[in-house]
């Protein structure tokens, strides 16, 4: 749509700007201030300059946590985005089943995050959980508190359970917005099912997919409550992702300066990757 140039439109955006800036900018500034100081208590603090940054950037434990986090987040995207698109294509489009499936599909999204951990704990435990008992009954050794792979895959399965529906709902709405004329044109051309998907449906999904990829990347990169409840980061440090590392630093060791420097680096990583996603996806559709 043609949009007219009008800088008074800023007045419409002002309420949003004020509300978000209040909660966003002041805490961000404070964290930057923390990150260059050693805070011992409310009244004792020293300026340490770049000390924390140097220390964190050379911390091998942190490199390992970052690696695990990247592998996990990209696995999440690799599973959830294709699965979400496939399921959105299978959703019913008319009749009473639309409302029923929507309700059922959306349900996991409305479960508080710590409860997601609880649900999966009860479901996957090898002594009382349905999944654990069944797998062990089939002769597959499975215990997510001991096996590294079992733990990692359980956390991944939990995230798929929890969040694939978001991708499904977004893609479903994108698919419903495609006018019938497009399908008719494709049918006249004798396009195959795959050609319809590739040239009619997928291009029109880029808008919703941008937001789905961004939301899923950002949230999985900051995943905290669910693995904390389920595995506590173990066994060893297989499921200790970045935010748990950070929380231990900030809360358990009360090392607030170091944790602040860490969270700013963390923020820069998310910002850079999200910007690349955002730019690549939005620009590739414009031409």
């Amino acid at each position: 749509m043609d949009r007219t140039q009008n800088n008074y439109a800023w007045l419409f955006v002002l309420p949003v700007l004020v509300l978000v800036a209040f909660s966003a900018i002041i805490p961000l500034m404070t964290v930057v201030n923390y990150s260059v100081q050693d805070v011992l208590d409310a009244n004792t603090r020293f300026f340490v300059g770049d000390e924390w940054y140097r220390e964190i950037l050379r911390d091998p434990q942190l490199h390992a946590a970052l690696g695990r986090q990247l592998v996990f987040s990209f696995s999440v995207l690799a599973v959830q985005i294709p699965l979400g698109i496939a399921i959105a294509l299978c959703m019913p489009t008319r009749g009473i089943w639309v409302a029923v499936t929507l309700v059922l599909v959306a349900l996991p999204l409305l479960v508080p995050w710590n409860v997601v951990g609880t649900i999966w704990q009860l479901f996957a435990r090898s002594d009382i959980g349905l999944l654990g008992v069944t797998l062990n009954g089939l002769g597959i050794e499975y215990n997510y508190t001991r096996g590294r792979w079992a733990a990692w895959l359980t956390v991944l399965a939990m995230d798929v359970w929890h969040w694939t529906s978001l991708v499904v709902l977004l893609c479903y709405s994108g698919l419903r917005a495609i006018p019938d004329a497009y399908y008719q044109a494709a049918r006249i051309d004798g396009a195959s099912r795959w050609a319809v998907f590739r040239h009619v449906q997928l291009p029109r999904l880029t808008g919703v997919l941008t937001i789905a990829v961004l939301l899923r990347f950002m949230d999985s990169f900051m995943i905290y409550a669910e693995p904390f409840v389920l595995t506590g980061g173990g066994p060893g440090s297989t499921t200790t992702f970045l935010s748990q590392f950070l929380t231990t630093m900030a809360v358990a060791q009360f090392d607030i300066g170091r944790a602040a420097a860490f969270s700013l680096i963390y923020f820069l990583i998310i910002l850079a990757i999200s910007w690349v996603f955002y730019t690549v996806i939005t620009r590739s559709t414009k031409i």
Binding site: M29, V32, N33, V36, V39, A42, F47, G49
Partner: peptide, 14 residues
């Protein structure tokens, strides 16, 4: 006061 300002960070934000 709780924002723990320091001169270098203040300069940065300015």
């Amino acid at each position: 006061d709780w924002m723990y300002w320091t001169p270098p960070t203040a300069l940065f934000f300015v």
